[in-house]
Design a protein around this nucleic acid. Sequence first.
DNA 1: GATGAATGAGGTTTCATTCAT
DNA 2: AATGAATGAAACCTCATTCAT
Lengths: 198, 198, 198, 198
Amino acid sequence: MGGTMDVTKQQRRGNTRQRIQDVALDLFAEQGYEKTSLREIAEHLDVTKAALYYHFKTKEEILVSIFDDLTQPILDLIEWGRQQPHTLETKQEIVRRYSATLAGATPLFRFMQENQATVRELRVGETFKERMQGLREIIVDPEADLTDQVRCVSAIFTLHAGMFFLQDIAGDPEAKRKAVLEVATDLVTQAHRGGAEG
Amino acid sequence: MGGTMDVTKQQRRGNTRQRIQDVALDLFAEQGYEKTSLREIAEHLDVTKAALYYHFKTKEEILVSIFDDLTQPILDLIEWGRQQPHTLETKQEIVRRYSATLAGATPLFRFMQENQATVRELRVGETFKERMQGLREIIVDPEADLTDQVRCVSAIFTLHAGMFFLQDIAGDPEAKRKAVLEVATDLVTQAHRGGAEG
Amino acid sequence: MGGTMDVTKQQRRGNTRQRIQDVALDLFAEQGYEKTSLREIAEHLDVTKAALYYHFKTKEEILVSIFDDLTQPILDLIEWGRQQPHTLETKQEIVRRYSATLAGATPLFRFMQENQATVRELRVGETFKERMQGLREIIVDPEADLTDQVRCVSAIFTLHAGMFFLQDIAGDPEAKRKAVLEVATDLVTQAHRGGAEG
Amino acid sequence: MGGTMDVTKQQRRGNTRQRIQDVALDLFAEQGYEKTSLREIAEHLDVTKAALYYHFKTKEEILVSIFDDLTQPILDLIEWGRQQPHTLETKQEIVRRYSATLAGATPLFRFMQENQATVRELRVGETFKERMQGLREIIVDPEADLTDQVRCVSAIFTLHAGMFFLQDIAGDPEAKRKAVLEVATDLVTQAHRGGAEG
DNA sequence: GATGAATGAGGTTTCATTCAT
DNA sequence: AATGAATGAAACCTCATTCAT
């Protein structure tokens, strides 16, 4: 039986785990976590549901593994941020780096944004919240006045929103990304100055 | 059997429809649409699932009815906005009014935000998108440069984010609401000036 | 409330029972008994389900009442047939009369034919079987040889089949009815002769 | 759990699909399609409802699979008939072969006959109609006069009726089958002669 | 003569998961 | 490394029926 395996199947050898993650993320992002069944994932890969269970213990674990792989850069960013001085330049750099991170894992962030209700009850929900908390800590000055704190949070959300909600606005994607980055940078800059002046 | 109905049940008579909507929205907002089963809603109300179907044709229709009832103010706001001159004051007033609208229907907006993936495949998804589109039209100047357009969209998102994502930030809720409003107003103001100066 | 009843509704007064029977028979014949729900019947009549229960005790009783009203002619025919001599003329007359009876209650017979499985578990099933049994008794000579008995049964079935299964054959309906009647008459005639000769 | 599976269950392995078809056909024929629930089928087989869905995508597909398996002979018969000359002998042979086909799939034909209303809305309904249409085409001469056409259709219906409606008539089954076949053969013979003479 | 509100039973279907092979 | 077969739980939904008004 193994001998009659066709070429397509042979090529798959050994990277099924990765392929599951890829397909799963695509489907999760497109349809949501609950609406994506393991049957569907399996069918897209032309394997059986049981095969998924060889590679992952549960449906949730598929998501966890994707999440862990793709959000490592955020962890790194937070780690880096913690060791920097709380200067304006640092904050601007954080915004720049976070923007790049988002761009490198768009489907996952889209998924996290669009499935918050679901994700909240999952392990990744808690983890993601912690990451966001960490991000806030390195970008928001707890001593600043409330308005400036909001500005910093807003900067992060502007970046998030930029990924999806600007899709329906006309314009070249790269131009839009730059515009979004500019607005976000502006927001942290104002926040910083506000604090300095106040 | 009907004769032995207890007082609690009698009082309910005639407002079951409303009560279904209330409980459903609570649960939808808390757990998500998919994770909330009709059984659960029914149990909370101490009626049978079939009773829900007497008042609503499908699960989706429950959501639609809630949505239609609670988003009427946005429709009114868009209508109003269309008839105003495109001045800075108008935009600031739109931000103020939208902020008030959000405050008046927090659970629904929380739900819409946190269940985007699900909602996208539902009728309310399309409708909501249209509403947001309408809102953008009255607040974003298509002639302005991209950065200023992003500022306006960002203002709306700041208001949205303000409802939920600031929950973990310390501070008096009313103070936070004002801070959020201020940042959003700032953003449209800058956008307007930018356009004027550019 | 009664005072504001519109004209259409006023006209309905007093014949609702009949109207239920009419609509029910139409739907039963078209979709089958099981697939036709009381909700559907009620909607067609623009009344509530509960109204049906004012006129009939159960769904089955609606069918029973229709059946009893429309199959009385068969009862009469059997009664008549029992008092006639067992001549060829009698048999031919039975075929002629039965053909007329069928023509006068096509939807019911269509229903009975197409819902035998369902009807078998209903009270009308038993009754219908008895009627058919009675019909057989007056047209089949138990002394005749088996082939001729089959001819007589076949005559009855030819009449039944004539109602529906010839629909897809081209030709004027009245011409078809006559052709069917001729074949059926032929069959009983041959049966009679066979018996006489054998 | 799997290890403690009893002998009876082990023997079943690998032929569950066939067993589902068998039990389903029995129950469909006995009680009708709608009245037969998947729960019932599953219970008869001592498996869960979900097991049925492993083997068939829907309830309807169970029926389709049974139908396709059992009506293949009719397809073959039509195919054969189309290649024969339109002689009397051919028609008589068709009657003989069709009679044999019916005898080999009695429960299915009983089911189709007794559940026409239901079946009409199912995929098999359309298919069955086409088959019957095909059968008519090879046995009915469209040039013949209407009465003779009716005779041929009547022959087919006599065969159908023979399977069920003669059940209540006394007599040895094999003798009855022969009698039915004789009457049907007679009908096509008369039809053929009529055409020849007319 | 009819409605409004509700129920209890049961329907088909889908899902994540298991396990022997 | 993966399959085939199956399960248990639960989902949405529909139906005939009831009864106070």
